[in-house]
Design a protein around this nucleic acid. Structure first.
Lengths: 339, 339
DNA sequence: AGCTATTAAAATAACGTTTGCATAAACTTG
DNA sequence: CAAGTTTATGCAAACGTTATTTTAATAGCT
């Protein structure tokens, strides 16, 4: 009990050579039907599992894909991982998961770990600190296919899968404008993160393109301090009593903002329309339910996974390309119906 | 360019045998200091990485730990995975991540995948559907160490790491009682999930132990239908105008419930105190901020990971034991201050 | 009958390590 | 200085596969 059955054991019991067993199991036509069935039956009976370590050593392929994420506790990233898993598992690949916790050092280590494990490819999102890309170049040098998702190194000549944050924010803001909002504030996230910045620019461009002023004092940079939102909203409503729209970079913060506004006696969406971002679970648990931009995490994961599979299984070339996932607005109760 | 450096290549360049190189790299005292340094320098220079496929085949150890989770998009589970990763990475193990999506079939497949990859051990949380455990017995038969976390198969003689949901719910309810609540309702989750049930019993036991009636009509079984909560709360407040406490199995639903109560004109916590569960991010984004039971996900992950490491690296026996993580209440603004 | 094709299966090498055993050279030691 | 011991290294087997080459057995043909 306890020991794994090998091809050699099957061969011994059947009185044939192990190479015959190997071929029989992989349906090689050079083995007679009779022997093949004999082999397969015994393999089944003994509960034979091919030893993937041996298989991999022999084939020189690990069937392993390295996945490097900056922070697995962010639901966006864990959903991406879920999407990747779903896609690559079907093709018999497994995932070597590395969590860098936003540390550049850990990211370098993660790449080394990938190399050590001889992964067949790497899917990565860079940390907020990553400015040097030598470690990724190393992968390229070793001809390990690399695909970036979400947080990408723009100038490396590899495929990238990203969400169109700019367009999403643009469309959300445009929706507020279309529903007759004239004075729209924005709460944005960390200035270090590309994604927040793209959303900010999407907001500004939408305003500009529709003839509304872009007003610095209507923009709040949020950095983990909820009470700053109370202050911002109070100040803003005092200065701009006609405030009738709010676009927030994240659903949690949108939820918080709505609570603050409600306490100040504002009606949502009659007085002020609010648009969130990411369509987190909280969006449907709120009252009123939050209009938001659809979460593209699992789609992003699936697309990144598929790209890798195409490269690995169908010899697609690794080229400098960008797959952009387009936005989809989810309209709920915090925005007015148009028209 | 592109090919990995092997031990044999180093040996060739240095004019020694590959076994000498192998020993030199692993600091075997049988190799002279001079040779050892020669080897190490060249290895460094050539960017040598031990080929883990070969290493594993040779050693008969995969350095891989299978992690089976029911739903990675639930932040509780992704945080557990993060905790596991953090712990096992330090000991040079990698994770083979399997997501069962609450499907029993996928869970069986996941175990097979673990076997196929010759994982050194398996960490698992079962699906809501799992009633048969033959696949896990298979692991035990193959002497693959198994450790359960959170959702466990109670009667299998292996280590388990769980949160004390009963005690947590008991303490949360007791806190409501201590703050002078006399009529406390409870919203519970799926009747199929152990965790919800344990919380339900914790609530009931706390009431009973403090001389309060356990009243079936104060308990609502929530199944993914927010509007059922509106109905429940309205009905309950009509029937029990003295309702002054609410304990909810999950922070999202607590958030929703508070919104409903607020709209009905109830003041939180002056009229009704509310206690949530899990301390999700939303708890701090609410107004008032939600009192909740601390999230134990990453601690659970670390404990489960450590247990596995102890078994694998320090030959700890696989025994039928239960590690219980004790509750910690986070008191915020939805409950009254005691005394 | 004698030769060639064809078919089926066995043998062997290879993948890159670790490891037990062997060996040669250089030291001890009485 | 011969015998034994230590030191430093090499050799070869083993891990479980796949893949290439060889051999053996059978069948088909003139």
């Amino acid at each position: 009990m306890g020991k794994y059955v090998t091809i050699t054991e099957i061969a011994r019991q059947l009185g044939v050579s192990h190479s015959t067993v190997s071929r029989a199991l992989s349906d090689n036509p050079r083995i007679s039907k009779k022997t093949r069935e004999l082999v397969k039956n015994l393999a089944e009976k003994l509960g034979y599992h091919t030893n993937s370590m041996a298989l991999r050593l022999s084939k020189g392929k690990s069937q392993l894909i390295g996945v490097i994420v900056p922070d697995l506790s962010i639901s966006f990233f864990s959903k991406i991982v879920e999407g990747i898993l779903e896609t690559v598992q079907k093709e018999d690949y497994s995932i070597l998961l590395l969590n860098t916790q936003e540390s550049f050092e850990k990211e370098k280590e993660a790449v080394e770990t990938c190399l050590k494990h001889r992964v067949d490819g790497v899917l990565a999102a860079i940390t907020m600190q990553t400015k040097n890309f030598d470690h990724y170049e190393r992968l390229i040098k070793y001809e390990v296919p690399l695909v970036f998702f979400d947080r990408v190194a723009n100038f490396l000549p590899v495929p990238k899968v990203v969400a169109n944050d700019h367009q999403s924010a643009f469309n959300a803001t445009k929706h507020l404008i279309d529903s007759k909002c004239k004075c729209i504030a924005h709460i944005t996230g960390s200035i270090n993160l590309n994604n927040s910045n793209n959303r900010l620019y999407g907001y500004m461009d939408a305003l500009a393109e529709h003839g509304l002023d872009v007003n610095e004092s209507l923009i709040h940079y949020y950095e983990f301090e909820p009470s700053s939102i109370d202050k911002f909203l109070k100040k803003t409503i005092k200065k701009y009593p006609n405030l009738d729209g709010l676009f927030v970079f994240n659903d949690y913060v949108a939820n918080y903002s709505i609570n603050v506004l409600t306490k100040m006696g504002k009606k949502i969406p009659e007085d002020i329309s609010v648009f969130g971002f990411s369509d987190e679970p909280v969006a449907t648990y709120m009252t009123p339910q939050l209009s938001s931009v659809k979460q593209v995490a699992s789609k992003m994961g699936r697309l990144a996974g598929q790209k890798m599979i195409s490269i690995l299984n169908y010899d697609e070339a690794v080229v400098n390309e960008k797959v952009v996932i387009n936005p989809e607005l989810i309209l709920r109760e915090t925005t007015k119906v148009i028209g």
